[in-house]
Amino acid sequence: MDTLFDLPEPEQAVIAHYRLSDDQYGSPAERAAIYNAERAMTSAVEAAGVGEVDGNEFGGGEAVLYAHGTDARALFKVMEPTLRSLPFRPAHVVLRQDSRESESRVDL
């Protein structure tokens, strides 16, 4: 055995930001659309075996969706069709690879 510890691969993230229609939590219809998209992405990500959708956050007129895995680009590729289908704009995704210093932004 060459190593003392079996360390996990570094976790990477996909963090999607959407502007909502008000300065608080958005409308009930907006929240429902986010929840539906989250469920669809959870199924797709699990089926592809690329990570996990880790939840959402609402507040300050924004909805944020979180996902984690070992390859942010592969995770985003699976999530991208659903992320782009949401109508809320402006919107963008942050791909975090290895650390905050290696982030990239994708406008939706």
Rank of each mutant, 00 (worst) to 15 (best):
D107A: 03
R100V: 12
E30P: 07
Y25M: 10
L108K: 13
E103F: 00
A44W: 08
P87A: 05
F88Y: 07
Y25S: 13
A48H: 02
S104A: 08
L86E: 03
R39F: 10
Y35T: 11
E11Q: 13
F76C: 03
E38W: 03
D71R: 04
Q12E: 15
P81H: 03
H92R: 12
H17C: 02
V94Y: 00
N36V: 12
R105I: 14
A63I: 07
Y35I: 15
D6N: 13
P87S: 10
R89A: 13
R84M: 05
V50H: 14
D22M: 07
V78T: 11
Y66L: 09
G69S: 12
E46S: 13
A48T: 07
V106F: 11
P28C: 03
V94A: 00
S104M: 04
I34V: 13
V106G: 02
P90K: 03
G59M: 06
R31M: 11
R73M: 07
T3D: 06
V93T: 10
E57L: 08
R39T: 14
G61D: 05
V78W: 07
G61A: 08
Q97S: 04
E9W: 06
V78Q: 05
Q24L: 00
A74W: 10
A91V: 02
M1V: 15
A16Q: 08
A37C: 14
V50S: 14
A33K: 12
D22S: 14
P28H: 08
I34C: 02
M41A: 06
